[in-house]
Simulated assay, not measured.
Amino acid sequence: MILFGLKCWILIFSQMTIISNRTFLRIQCITLDFLLQSCLNMDQWLNACVAGERAYTIIKGTRFQKKKSKKAAKIIIIILIIVIISTSIYDPFYRRLIDEENDDEIRIWCIITYSSSLKTFHSAIHSFHFIAPFVINLVSSIVLITRKSRQQSNLRTDRTYYQLLRQQLREHKNLLIAPVILVILALPRLIISYISNCMKSASNPWIYLILYFISFIPPMLTFIIYVLPSKFYK
C-alpha cells in the first residue's frame, strides 16, 4: 500500500511537473517499479502458502506440529524472496526515462525496453508468478473442503459424504471464490506483460496506466475477500 501510494503520487506530481528532477525520477523508475513487482509476486505466493498450510493442517490432523510448521514457513519465505528477486533482477537494468512532447507540454515516462528473447522470458516468468499461486490456492481450497468433508463423514454416519460436502462448500465458498476474483482483477497486469506495442499518442498511455493500477487492487482486497466473509473471524 505504501509503495503503491508513493508510486501513484510520484506519477501524478511528475505529470503535473511538480517533480521534474530527472535523477530522482530515474532512481524511482529503476527501484520503485521493481519493488512493487516483487511485492506483488510475494503477496500472491504468500497467499498460496497460507492456503497450502490450511490444506496441510487438515491432512495431518492431530499429527500437525506447529513448531515444524513455523520453521518451514521461515525457510519458505526466505526461498520465495530469493526466487522472486532472482527471477526479476534484470528488470531495473532495462528501465529508462523518455520525454513525450504534446502540445507544448513535456511528459516524462518510465519505460522498459526488452529484447525479443528477454521479453519472452519476462512474459513466461510473469505468467508463472501469476498462474502458479492461483493454482496452488485453488487446489488447496478444494483439498481442504473435500478432506474435511471426508473426515466428518467418518464421524457422522447420519449424513452422507455428499451432503457434508455441500455443507462444506457453503461454509467455505469464499476460499474458492476469492482466488478467482483476485486473479480476474490481476489479469490486466498479465495482459500488460504481453503487450509490446509502443504508446504513441497522448491518450494511449493512460489506458495502460489504468490497467496497471487496477492490477494493484487484489492485495488491497485481501481483508475484504478472505477475512470478512469467513465465519471464523466473526
Rank of each mutant, 00 (worst) to 15 (best):
L155N: 08
T57S: 14
I214S: 02
I191K: 07
S203Y: 02
P218F: 04
I217K: 00
A55L: 02
I225Y: 01
I30K: 15
F134H: 10
Q163R: 03
L118H: 08
I136M: 12
N197Q: 13
Q151K: 13
S215R: 10
C8K: 09
K71M: 09
K68R: 13
Q152N: 13
E105F: 14
S69N: 11
R107V: 04
Q151D: 13
L35H: 08
L32T: 07
T160M: 00
R54Q: 07
R26H: 06
N102Y: 15
A55C: 04
L36F: 04
T222F: 02
M220R: 09
I210A: 03
R96Y: 15
I81Y: 08
R159S: 06
I75M: 09
V83R: 00
T120Y: 09
S123L: 10
C39Y: 07
D104L: 07
Q65P: 00
T57K: 12
I2E: 08
V135L: 15
F121I: 13
L25Y: 04
I89K: 01
K234W: 05
L221S: 07
L211Q: 11
I77A: 11
K71R: 11
K74S: 13
Q163D: 11
F24W: 08
K231Y: 06
T120R: 12
K60V: 00
R189W: 02
N21R: 14
I30C: 02
Q167A: 11
V143T: 03
T62S: 15
V180P: 01
Q44N: 12
P218N: 04
L176F: 07
F134S: 00
F13R: 14
P218W: 05
H122D: 13
P179R: 08
K74I: 08
I30Q: 07
F130I: 01
F121S: 01
L175D: 05
R156I: 14
I207W: 07
I76A: 02
L32E: 11
L97F: 05
I12S: 02
L187P: 01
V83M: 06
A73R: 15
I192M: 12
L169D: 00
I112G: 00
F134L: 06
W9C: 09
I76G: 00
I85Y: 06
K71E: 06
K67D: 04
W206N: 02
P205S: 01
I142N: 03
S86M: 10
V180A: 09
Y208R: 11
R22E: 15
Y90Q: 09
Y162A: 03
D158Y: 07
V143S: 01
S140G: 03
K7N: 06
V227P: 01
D99E: 15
S193N: 12
R22I: 04
Q28G: 00
L190Q: 12
I78T: 11
I2L: 14
N197Y: 15
